[in-house]
Amino acid sequence: MDLFLQQLVNGLTVGSIYSLVALGLTLVFGILHVPNFAHGAFYMIGAYITLLVMTALGMNYWIAIIISIVSVGLLSIVFERLVFSRIDAKDPLAMMIAAIGILFFLESAALYLWGSQYQRMITPYGDTVQFLGITVTYQRILVIVAAVILMILLHLFLTKTMTGSAIVAMSQNRKGAFLVGINANKVAMLTFAIAGGLAAAAASLSAPINLVFPSMGNLVIMKAFVIIIIGGMGSIPGAIIGGYILGITESLGGTYISADYKDVIAFALLVIILTMKPNGLFGKGVH
């Protein structure tokens, strides 16, 4: 029982990271209707910025995270303006190629600036706490709590503010949103900023548990694509629930089946769910 609870907590930790990354991917997909492969690179850049601010500037972990969120949010806006906004929205292939190009560019830039070696981020929450017979680091608890807070804040923003409602409206009907006076450019910029900020937050929270390296976003973004397909393309509840389902399934499967098959479990789960529900758990549309 103790082993099960231990892996359940680990699964919730991983699922929290997956959900945050998938949320950003879902928001951008709702606007562009194209999978943003560059999202994994924004995740990686977020971790490096937090690490750089902490080590080179000697700033507090939380201040470093805030700087990372703002920086990656602004970087996302830059690429949205310079690249995505200049491509015909009716050409999804061009959008996809552009996203892959940004991914390679940012990974190459990280490789040039910081090298290929794995780096560890020191956290002030590395101590452990024991409860219910299991041992958990404060960092893992922080990941779960912070992720839930960010999800609640995003939900309130999308449902309780005019700007959030504009994002939802544009994702549901781009032409209709334009006809009622919604500024498509501003909505797209804000959506990319939010998505980039969520990716940076996820990376900054998970980096002390894992490691920081140029290709760290590749596997995470693959899992995020699996999650948004499982949850339903463009569904925010689907991204959240799908992230936790995948995180817990991987953790328990890696323990009770084999750690060698942990990454395969994600794609097996994808096949199983789509066999039963071809449109995903929550269908389509940002809601």
Rank of each mutant, 00 (worst) to 15 (best):
L5C: 10
Q6A: 15
G11L: 07
G11C: 05
L12K: 06
V14K: 11
S16A: 14
S16P: 00
L20A: 01
L20E: 02
T26C: 14
V28P: 00
G30N: 14
V34L: 09
N36L: 03
A38R: 01
A41R: 09
G46R: 03
A47K: 05
Y48P: 04
T50E: 03
L51W: 09
L52P: 04
L52M: 12
A56E: 10
G58H: 01
G58I: 03
Y61M: 08
I63T: 12
A64T: 06
I65S: 06
I65G: 04
S68D: 07
I69E: 04
S71F: 11
V72Y: 03
L74K: 09
S76L: 02
F79Q: 03
E80L: 13
E80Y: 13
D91L: 08
D91P: 04
L93A: 14
M95P: 01
I97F: 13
A98E: 00
A98N: 00
I100D: 01
G101D: 01
I102D: 03
F105G: 02
E107Q: 15
E107R: 04
A110L: 15
L111W: 09
L113A: 15
G115T: 14
Q117P: 08
R120S: 14
D127K: 10
T128I: 07
V129C: 09
Q130K: 13
F131I: 09
I134M: 09
T135I: 09
V136Y: 04
T137A: 03
Y138T: 14
Q139T: 11
Q139Y: 08
R140P: 06
R140K: 12
I141A: 10
V143C: 03
V145I: 14
V145R: 09
A146S: 15
I149D: 02
K160Q: 10
M162I: 12
T163W: 10
T163F: 13
V168M: 13
V168Q: 11
A169F: 02
S171A: 15
Q172K: 12
N173W: 00
A184S: 15
A184V: 15
N185M: 13
K186D: 08
V187G: 00
A188C: 10
A195P: 03
G197I: 10
G197K: 08
S204R: 07
L205I: 06
S206M: 12
A207N: 06
I209W: 08
L211S: 15
V212L: 01
F213R: 12
F213H: 14
F213M: 11
M216L: 11
M216H: 09
I221P: 06
M222C: 13
A224Q: 07
I227C: 03
I228Y: 07
I230L: 04
I230H: 00
G232E: 02
G234Y: 01
P237I: 01
P237M: 00
A239G: 11
I240V: 15
G242E: 04
Y244T: 01
G247V: 09
I248F: 06
S251Q: 13
L252R: 11
G254R: 05
G254H: 05
D260R: 09
Y261V: 03
K262T: 04
K262W: 07
K262Q: 11
K262G: 02
D263G: 08
F267G: 13
T275V: 10
T275W: 13
M276S: 13
K277Q: 03
L281W: 00
F282A: 05
G283I: 08
G283P: 00
H287F: 12
H287A: 15
